[in-house]
Simulated scan of single mutants.
Amino acid sequence: MRLRNVPGSREDIAESSFVIQEPEKHKGKIKELFPGRQPLFIEIGMGKGQFITTLARLHPEINYIGIEKYSSVLVRALDKQNELELPNLKFIRMDAEDINNVFDENEVDGIYLNFSDPWPKDRHAKRRLTSRQFFARYELLLKPEGKIQFKTDNSSLFDFSLEEVVATNFKATEVTYDLHNSEWNEGNVMTEYEEKFSAKGNPIKRVVFIRN
């Protein structure tokens, strides 16, 4: 899917106090950028930010960082934050492959992966956010008790994720192929994609990965 360019998005992001500029400089001290040193959760590939903005509003006792690669998408989340001005929510524009340059060991309490790019071609498997290469990255930055929550409507990507985790130091728990009709749906916060796919009758898959 080709992204529509949003004029001025890079400039808006560069000037915003809600966006962490040059995040590599804050490695190991990123919690100090928030008013309170609370638990830190991140969403990798946040899209337009509905999910993480809702979480930040519902849970002021937790700090959140939304990570997005594309300026034209991140700026939509920034529009929401400019209205709400939530003190526990910030953004980073970066490629997820560089995540260990930004977050130090055991610096993150939890990770959300929502409707990630499936990268359907086999040769691109290592780019999938639930590949063993990315699990290795998460292992470094995530606290020992930290969890990774993954949601998707893509059956192939979901099955790949369950197979891939076997080769890592994580394991799959709370696995469901139909989240909205499962015991784990209570308190579920939906993303834009989740609302769209659910309206079409597509079941949402969800799994929580924890360390072995």
Rank of each mutant, 00 (worst) to 15 (best):
A14P: 02
N154F: 03
R93V: 08
E85G: 09
H59C: 08
L78A: 09
F150K: 03
R57H: 12
S198G: 15
T191R: 01
A56H: 07
P39K: 12
F51M: 06
H124N: 10
E174N: 13
T53Y: 07
Y70R: 14
K200I: 04
N212I: 13
I111Y: 01
N185I: 12
P118C: 01
P23C: 07
T130E: 10
R123H: 10
G45S: 05
S198C: 09
V75T: 15
R37A: 09
R127N: 10
S182H: 15
R127W: 01
R132E: 06
D109T: 01
Y64I: 05
E105Y: 00
V189D: 05
D178I: 12
Q38Y: 15
V6N: 04
M46L: 14
H124T: 01
T152V: 02
F91A: 00
G28L: 04
N181D: 13
G36K: 14
N100R: 10
S17I: 03
Q149C: 06
F209Y: 13
I99L: 14
R132C: 11
E24Q: 12
K151E: 03
A14I: 08
K126D: 05
M1F: 03
T54E: 14
F34W: 12
I99S: 02
N63C: 10
P87G: 11
E24C: 04
Q81G: 11
S198K: 11
A14M: 12
D104P: 02
A199G: 15
D104I: 02
F170P: 07
I62H: 09
F91K: 10
S131A: 03
S9Y: 06
R206F: 13
L162I: 02
K143C: 00
I111A: 05
L84S: 15
N100F: 00
V75K: 08
I210W: 04
E163R: 10
L162P: 04
S71N: 11
K25H: 07
G146K: 01
R206H: 13
V175I: 15
I210L: 09
S9W: 08
G36R: 14
E139G: 03
K80Q: 14
E105P: 00
P144I: 07
A172Q: 12
R37S: 13
E192V: 14
R127V: 01
L179W: 10
S9R: 05
L84Y: 14
Y70I: 08
V165M: 06
G110D: 00
G66P: 10
F170D: 08
E97Y: 08
N106C: 07
R2G: 10
D153R: 07
M1V: 02
E24N: 11
S17W: 00
N181H: 15
T130I: 00
S9T: 05
K151D: 06
A14R: 09
Y138F: 10
F158K: 03
N181G: 14
K151P: 03
L55M: 11
G187V: 15
E85H: 15
R137E: 05
I44T: 07
E43L: 04
L141S: 04
E105I: 01
S17H: 13
S182W: 15
D122G: 00
I13H: 06
S116P: 04
Y138W: 05
S9I: 02
Y112N: 02
N212M: 04
K205I: 01
F115S: 00
E186K: 15
F150L: 03
H180I: 04
N100W: 01
A136E: 13
K200L: 11
S156H: 09
V165K: 06
P120H: 01
N82V: 07
